[in-house]
């Protein structure tokens, strides 16, 4: 019961802090003092108090974009196990629902972008749906590999692994799965080297350009939902990178949070030392993820 409450508090409160950590790491690399860790939360609170401007071109679809993206990440977040703590809602086949919830969010965020009638937002939507068809099979093959390893069909079973832990014979596929999932996290969460959340040029953006017209509370919800997505996908990655359980709930929660902090730091480091790929190079990077998870599967069943 306590674990369930902790789960939901973490799901709601922690994600914006992860973005704060990423930004802090980037400023340290750049030699700046950087914003406080809680800055994203402050931004969200400020946006919630602000008024908004809505283009007269738009319809209800424009409002549905942020609403659906928040609803889907909340549900997706409640389906995955956090560290050794199982999801209370797991069911056979929830892994498929999990992946398709992101598709649902994409349908509405890209539709909301097209609803504004802006060329820039249309461009972002076009890129978003294009990259998705490369990341989706990578994600599915990665999950399929884990499903094969654990012999399970629900996220709790798939991500917590076989009863005695992963055997050392499966190390190679697991490394490849981790690589694939890492790329998926970067791509789905619009991080460098796929997308640059801080660029000043709309022409080069994907996610940020789709939400140019959303302001005030709408933008606050979008920021929050994007951070939750980062949290959820990082959780999945952690199951492969850090599959440990001490048996003591408090220590396990600490390990889990430390893992999330580590992923955020890692993303911050990548963002600091890499440039964004040119748009036409991005598909190669994403195909790399597909190759990794595909090879992992082949290695496993050869």
């Amino acid at each position: 019961m306590i674990d369930t409450i902790v789960r939901f508090l973490l799901l709601l409160a922690f994600p914006p802090i992860m973005l704060g950590i990423v930004n802090r790491v980037k400023s340290v690399f750049a030699g700046r003092k950087g914003p406080p860790i809680l800055q994203t939360w402050r931004d969200i609170a400020k946006l919630a108090r602000k008024g908004l401007v809505v283009s007269s071109t738009t319809t209800w679809v424009f409002l549905a974009g942020p609403a659906v993206s928040l609803a889907t990440v909340l549900i997706a977040g409640s389906l995955v196990p956090y560290g050794p703590f199982r999801s209370p809602f797991g069911f056979t086949g929830d892994v498929i629902l999990f992946a398709y919830l992101f598709g649902l969010a994409r349908f509405f965020t890209t539709s909301a972008a097209l609803d504004t009638g802006s060329a820039f937002e249309g461009m972002g939507a076009s890129r978003e749906v294009t990259f998705a068809f490369l990341t989706e099979p990578a994600l599915f093959l990665a999950l399929l590999t884990l499903a094969r390893l654990s012999g399970s069909l629900d996220l709790n079973g798939i991500l917590l692994g076989p009863a005695g832990g992963f055997s050392s014979a499966t190390a190679a596929p697991l490394v490849l799965v981790a690589l694939a999932l890492g790329i998926v996290v970067l791509a789905e969460c619009s991080r460098i080297p796929v997308d640059d959340p801080n660029t000043h040029l709309e022409l080069t953006m994907i996610h940020e350009v789709m939400v140019l017209d959303h302001s005030g509370p709408l933008f606050g919800v979008i920021t929050w939902a994007a951070s939750i997505k980062f949290f959820v996908l990082s959780t999945i990655l952690l199951h492969v990178l850090l599959p440990m359980s001490s048996g003591n709930a408090a220590i396990d929660w600490l390990i889990f949070v430390a893992g999330l902090v580590a992923v955020s730091v890692g993303v911050g480091v990548i963002e600091s030392i890499m440039a964004r790929f040119r748009m036409r190079r991005v598909p190669w990077f994403l195909t790399g993820a597909l190759l990794c998870s595909g090879s992992a599967f082949v290695l496993l069943v050869r």
Binding site: L52, S56, L63, A67, A71, S118, E202, P217
Partner: peptide, 30 residues
């Protein structure tokens, strides 16, 4: 759950956006 959360958020947005969609307020084209 999906319909419920989305409906709540849409109500909130519609409330926040009341009067925000005025004729002449076009899309911000950078």
């Amino acid at each position: 759950a999906l319909v419920g959360v989305v409906t709540l958020l849409l109500l909130y947005f519609s409330f926040a956006a009341r009067g925000a969609r005025k004729p002449g307020r076009g899309t911000w084209d950078c």
